[in-house]
């Protein structure tokens, strides 16, 4: 079984302590958990609603629980995980505030990654009057699952309003870290934060 790796995996793995317990929301085929198991000896569970993802996760020997994230994390106790991860899934969820609150209830910290709508190529396409399509936003307006796209600046403001303590923020483009003008030059943002 080949395990795909995404650009945010190594950044996320760098924040996971060896042997940590993690919960991966929207785990897909379980490849992030498999990566964290191999690189950090992490244990835990993935949550996935899609049948194909659940089947692939089981094939990857991942503990996967088939469930709809939109209905919350009722089956999980408070503070039962070191990290709760939402990797490139936030933008397709309906109730952002409630899932983030749930993440910080069951985990000591939350790790969230999302495509940066503020990337210059997206801004340019909007200026030209079209909805952006790019490697990080590969859908057309009529078939996109993304309903809550945001920019790095938007998510910074969200964390400030919610009084989250942001411990790390990494913005990438083509798997390289963008330090200068991240909201303009970065296409993938990864945040690590907790309740303050």
């Amino acid at each position: 079984m080949t395990i795909s790796t995404r650009a945010d995996f190594s950044t996320i793995a760098g924040w996971i302590a060896p042997g940590a317990r993690v919960l991966d929301l929207g785990c897909g085929d379980g490849s992030l958990l498999a990566y964290l198991r191999e690189s950090r000896s992490a244990t835990g569970y993935g949550i996935e609603i899609d049948d194909a993802g659940v089947l692939a996760s089981i094939g990857n020997s991942i503990n996967v629980i088939q469930s709809d994230l939109e209905s919350g994390l009722a089956g999980f106790e408070d503070r039962s995980f070191d990290s709760v991860i939402l990797s490139q899934t936030l933008q397709s969820m309906r109730r952002i505030e409630s899932i983030v609150a749930e993440m910080l209830r069951v985990g000591r910290e939350a790790i969230i990654s999302f495509p940066n709508f503020g990337h210059w190529s997206h801004r340019l396409q909007v200026l030209r009057g079209r909805m952006p399509v790019s490697p990080s936003l590969p859908y057309q307006w009529f078939n996109t699952p993304n309903i809550h796209l945001c920019t790095v600046a938007d998510f910074d403001a969200f964390c400030a309003e919610q009084r989250f303590r942001v411990d790390e923020r990494v913005v990438l483009h083509d798997a390289r870290r963008v330090v200068l003008l991240p909201n303009l030059l970065g296409s993938l943002a990864i945040y690590r934060f907790r309740s303050s």
Partner: peptide
Amino acid sequence: VRALVENRRDVSYA
């Protein structure tokens, strides 16, 4: 499933 997760057991649920 919930009781197994509380015990940190390896469990998958479909």
